[in-house]
Amino acid sequence: MANKRIIKCPNCGVFNTNKDYCENCNTLISHQKKRELKVAAVKKKEVDEAIFEKENPNLAERLKNHSNILYKIFGWILYSAITIVSAIGVGLAWFIAMVAAG
């Protein structure tokens, strides 16, 4: 015999047997279904953010790919400056971590 799931609807108080949605008010009552919908929403959000990042590059990337050579040069200079500042920041963070570690 299959497992019987009796779930009380938090919205209207009706007891439902083996249902994902309340028979009375159509409220989602299945905890498993709620988790599945939440996971799907998180995945969709991650995909949407990845698509946004791909379609909307930062200023340095846009300038590096510009058709005008002066904008391209400025884009590469800006990109190089960002890379150098990031490398200095990484080195400084490493040094502070090593000093803190003893």
Rank of each mutant, 00 (worst) to 15 (best):
V39Y: 09
T83V: 07
K33S: 08
F52E: 15
A97Y: 13
C12S: 12
I82K: 00
G89S: 03
I84N: 00
A60V: 03
S80P: 04
A40K: 10
V90R: 01
N68P: 02
K44Q: 15
V39N: 14
V85L: 11
A81P: 02
A93W: 08
N3Q: 06
I82F: 00
V42G: 01
A50M: 12
I84P: 00
A100V: 10
A100N: 13
A60S: 15
M1T: 13
T83E: 04
S30E: 07
F74I: 11
E61H: 03
L63S: 01
N65G: 11
Y71S: 06
S80W: 10
N18E: 11
S67M: 04
K38C: 10
K33A: 12
I88E: 04
A50H: 13
C12D: 14
N18C: 10
A87S: 10
A97I: 14
Y21I: 06
C9T: 01
C12H: 12
A100F: 07
G89V: 03
I29M: 04
N16Y: 02
I96P: 15
E36Y: 06
I7L: 05
N58L: 01
I7R: 00
A40G: 11
I7K: 05
F52H: 14
C22L: 02
E36D: 15
N16E: 05
C9M: 01
M98R: 13
N58H: 06
A50S: 13
L59M: 13
P10Y: 01
V39I: 14
R35W: 10
S67P: 14
S86G: 13
Q32E: 15
A87L: 08
S86M: 13
R62W: 02
S67V: 09
F74P: 04
I84Q: 00
K43T: 15
L59T: 15
Y71Q: 09
F74Q: 09
E55L: 06
L78I: 06
A100D: 14
I6D: 15
V47D: 14
M98S: 09
C25S: 08
L92C: 07
G13E: 05
N65Q: 11
I51A: 05
I84D: 02
I82L: 01
Y79V: 01
E53A: 03
E49Y: 02
A40V: 11
V90N: 06
A41Y: 03
D20H: 13
I73S: 05
L92K: 05
I7V: 14
S67R: 01
G13T: 00
A50R: 12
Q32G: 13
C25K: 08
L78H: 03
G13A: 00
V85A: 07
C12G: 13
G75Q: 07
K43H: 15
N16G: 06
L28Y: 04
L63Q: 03
G89D: 07
E49L: 10
I82N: 01
L92T: 10
I96A: 12
K8M: 04
V39E: 15
K34L: 12
L78F: 09
G89E: 05
I6S: 09
R62Q: 06
E46G: 02
C22V: 04
I84M: 01
I6F: 11
R35M: 13
H66N: 11
N3I: 14
S30H: 04
E36H: 04
V47F: 10
H66R: 07
